[in-house]
């Protein structure tokens, strides 16, 4: 195996993992605490990308654009929570699925009206464009920035959930919502905060990926399913699980794309390997999900029994 390629793919995998964690962490909290199916979580990812790209173009500064975009995404999250999500807490999953599916169609159509069907690209400031030497390879600075800022957010989330009073209430609500309510926790406020926080984290992920890919209409729908896979693997409601699963999915995807081809050539004739390898690597994370489901139906960190 080629070490340089391995390190590059490792970094790509970690970067994907970090972004997936940012999207999945909010989603898993909303699932775990509110028992609410939010198909439209990817909308915030898309909004983060488009709004930051537009504001970066307006202000001429990408970091400023991102900073200004996040409060706007929070606002969109607050409006969504109040108008669509809150009336549906505790209602049938079917109604939640339909409503949030409608929300996606609505949001995508609005985004198409505002930004058009073309994607939006963003140029990075010069100080983020370089590469750094890391042993045998040179790595783009910006990818490392994504990884470290994602890890920093993960660490901050951990501290918030495990070492603050509000985080304790969040954990209490996730473990047993009815009991938390009975003990006088203001669950309406708690729900709103968790929902908006999730929206902002997804928006941040969208803003961070835009300089590498671009802001596009389909990006939300593309990431949401992978975020679901992360939650299923990690176990609903568990931040730890979301983190572990996000990294696992990111690495499996990136390394699978790079090496399945070679692996298959060892076992099968070349022409079979050439068709099978891309097909299997396209499915690799879903196969991983299926395997985890067989071995541990509740995910890596299954939720403890909780009351409603």
């Amino acid at each position: 195996m080629n070490t340089a390629l391995f390190v590059t793919q490792l970094v790509n995998g970690l970067q994907l993992g970090v972004l997936l964690f940012l999207v999945a962490s909010g989603l898993t909290l909303v699932f775990g605490i509110l028992d609410f199916v939010n198909l439209a979580h990817g909308v915030f990812y898309m909004l983060g990308a488009f709004i930051s790209a537009s504001l970066a173009a307006l202000s001429g500064s990408w970091p400023l654009g991102v900073m200004l975009a996040l409060p706007l995404v929070a606002l969109a999250g607050a409006a969504t929570e109040r108008l669509v999500a809150r009336p549906l807490y505790g209602k049938s999953h079917l109604a939640q699925v339909l409503a949030t599916f409608g929300l996606i169609l609505l949001a995508d159509a609005l985004a198409m009206l505002i930004w058009g069907v073309e994607g939006r690209t963003v140029a990075l400031p010069a100080w983020l464009q370089g590469r750094v030497a890391a042993g045998v390879v040179e790595l783009p600075v910006y990818r490392l920035v994504i990884i470290f800022s994602g890890l920093a957010v993960a660490a901050a989330l951990y501290v918030w959930v495990h070492h603050t009073r509000f985080g304790m209430l969040v954990r209490a609500a996730a473990a047993n919502r009815a009991m938390a309510e009975a003990l006088g926790v203001d669950t309406a406020r708690l729900h709103a905060v968790v929902f908006i926080l999730g929206a902002v984290l997804a928006g941040l992920a969208g803003a961070l990926i835009t300089p590498i890919t671009e802001a596009s209409l389909s990006m939300g729908s593309d990431i949401i399913i992978v975020a679901f896979v992360v939650i299923i693997i990690g176990g609903t409601g568990s931040l730890k699980g979301a983190f572990a699963a996000a990294m696992l999915v990111g690495l499996v995807d990136a390394l699978g794309r790079a090496w399945l081809d070679d692996l298959f050539k060892l076992a099968f004739p070349a022409e079979i390997a050439e068709t099978a390898a891309p097909a299997i690597s396209a499915m690799s994370i879903y196969i991983l999900m299926a395997a985890i489901l067989v071995l541990r139906p509740g995910g890596l960190f299954p939720p403890r029994a909780r009351g409603r």
């Binding site: 549906l88 209602k91 109604a95 409503a99 409608g102 929300l103 169609l105 609505l106």
Partner: peptide, 11 residues
């Protein structure tokens, strides 16, 4: 769709 879902849920 949103209105239908809210209606179906009895909102």
């Amino acid at each position: 769709l949103i209105l239908a879902a809210l209606w179906q849920a009895g909102v």
